[in-house]
Structures are given as C-alpha cells and as structure tokens.
Design a protein around this nucleic acid. Structure first.
Lengths: 140, 140
DNA sequence: GGGTTTTCTGGAATTAATCAAGTTAACAGT
DNA sequence: ACTGTTAACTTGATTAATTCCAGAAAACCC
C-alpha cells in the first residue's frame, strides 16, 4: 500500500497541486478498489472531516484525466473508480450481488482488439465486462 | 425491416399483450438502433401521439426482459436499446462524437470468455466495448 | 510573504429513471 | 359479441447521480 508521500509524488509528477482532498481520495481508492463516488465521499470525510461532495467529484475527474485513477461504469451501476491503471485488465460483475473483481487479460495482449469488421472505425482500446456469479452466489 | 404484423407475432410468442406502445417501441428501435430512451419516446410520440414516458420505460423493460430487445449501457452514455438480439455482437463507441456501431465478434465464438483467472467466478458472458474514432472523426 | 491561479465550499439545478395509485384496455372464456 | 380478470398505461411525485455556478480559501511559483 503506497504512503501519503507516494501519493504526493504521484500528484506532483502529474502537475497537479497537492491538496488534502486529493491525497484522501487517492488513499481511499487504493484502499477500496471499485468503490463508487458516494462510498469514496464517505471514506474521505471519515479521514478529513468536512469535504464537499463537489470537491470529491472534481478530484475524481482530475485524477482520472491525469491517468492516476481509472473510471469504470459497469452496466447497472454508477461510476466506480480504481487505482490499477496502465495494465490491460478487465472486470467481472456478479449478476446476483453486483460485486466486482479484476480479471487479467487471458491471452497476454489486448483482447479482441482485432475486430473483424470495425466499420471504418480506428479502434485503440477494448474493454471487456464479464458477467457471471461470484463464488459466494454460485454456491447458493 | 419487419412489419407491424411481424412485431405482433413476436409479442404473442413472448406471451406479451399486443398494445400500441409496444408495437411503436419495437418499430422505433428497429428503425433507430442504439437510440436512447428519450429518442425512442420522441419517435413513439410522433407515431402514436400522446404516450407517457412511463409507458415507454415499462415497455422497454418488458421487451428487454422478454429478449426482444437488448439494453446496452455504453460508458459515458445513458441506456440505449437495439433490436439485434441473440447474436454475439459488440459495440464500438467513438471517443469524439459518441456514435455507436455494431462490431461482429472477431473470432466466431464468445470472445475472451476464457479468462485466465476468474477469481472463482462462474462466467457466462463477456461484453466488449471498443473505443476509437469513427470514420468522420478520424478524418478531422 | 505576496500574487496568481487553481481548488474547494455551499447551494441550486438538471437529468435519468423509478415509485405509487388509479384508470384503461387486452384477451381468455363463456 | 360480452364480460371479468389481469396486465398495461396515465399522471404526478420522488429519488439518485451528477453537474453548474459564484464566491471563498489555499497551493505554489517567485
């Protein structure tokens, strides 16, 4: 788990000002992968006290834009954020309880990126969402 | 393009009552693939006159549940609907203008369904969203 | 430390979608 | 065809997530 000083460096490296809300959001997302905005607001407020929801929205947007966080929008869910960036990984969503887990790319390269017919689109990324049942729900 | 009588049969085969709003929604989604709910409401009202938005929401849910329509939720967009169901096809979203196009599965079978490590999940489906630039935007 | 620029606060507004109660209409069975 | 039952639709309010806005605070370059 990175330290506050690591987060500070990440922000500086991205030419972003170092602020309390930003450090707290980075820490919260590292500690709670796939958390939605509301949960992150809760964690951040638990750490810093009063922080406006708007600040968290702004921070999430800035950090996502800078590539320090990744925003995912699973079908049937609000936006969620994770700190694993830069590696080509995907997600599996449980049909029953909605829990999300990471799934590494099966074949070692960007999966399915070579679509047969892209209708003239220039494709640069493919995101895969798997659906199924998590270990707990598949037992029940 | 299917006729009103085709839609009627589809509804009956799914044990759904045949109503004006349902026929109009089926027709609208066939004519406008990847349309969002608001656009569909507009098309349906143009055809039938006054139809409540709630009716359209209800119809879309019923038809999706019956497998007559498919609901997609592209990142950064509201829910959209399409009439192509039952074939394993995916979508490409233009980063610039947001237009959506169909992409057939590259390899002929469910792509990437064989994830290397699924964390114990029982995976039964994989949906792929490609991102890139549409022909128009890639020229500009 | 001072000035500039970005960020945060507080509150209102927007958008998508759902909920709820009552009315209307489809269709199965006579 | 007529009627009863049940599903579907209407109307209006409500929730949830997110964004917009103007002003106050604070980060950081010098």
């Amino acid at each position: 788990m990175p330290t506050a000083s690591d987060f500070r460096q990440l922000l500086r490296a991205a030419s972003l000002r170092v602020t309390g809300p930003r450090l707290a959001v980075l820490s919260a997302v590292h500690a709670h992968p796939h958390a939605d905005t509301d949960s992150i607001i809760g964690v951040v407020r638990g750490e810093l006290g009063g922080v406006s929801h708007q600040a968290v929205y702004d921070v999430l947007r800035a950090l996502t834009g800078a590539g320090l966080l990744r925003r995912i929008e699973p079908p049937g869910s609000v936006a969620r954020y994770e700190a694993r960036v830069g590696d080509n990984h995907h997600h599996v969503v449980c049909r029953s309880c909605g829990v999300i887990a990471d799934v590494d790319c099966a074949v070692g390269f960007a999966p399915c990126l070579t679509a047969s017919d892209a209708n003239g689109f220039v494709i640069d990324e493919a995101e895969v969402v798997y659906r199924g049942l998590c270990p707990g729900c598949s037992r029940a």
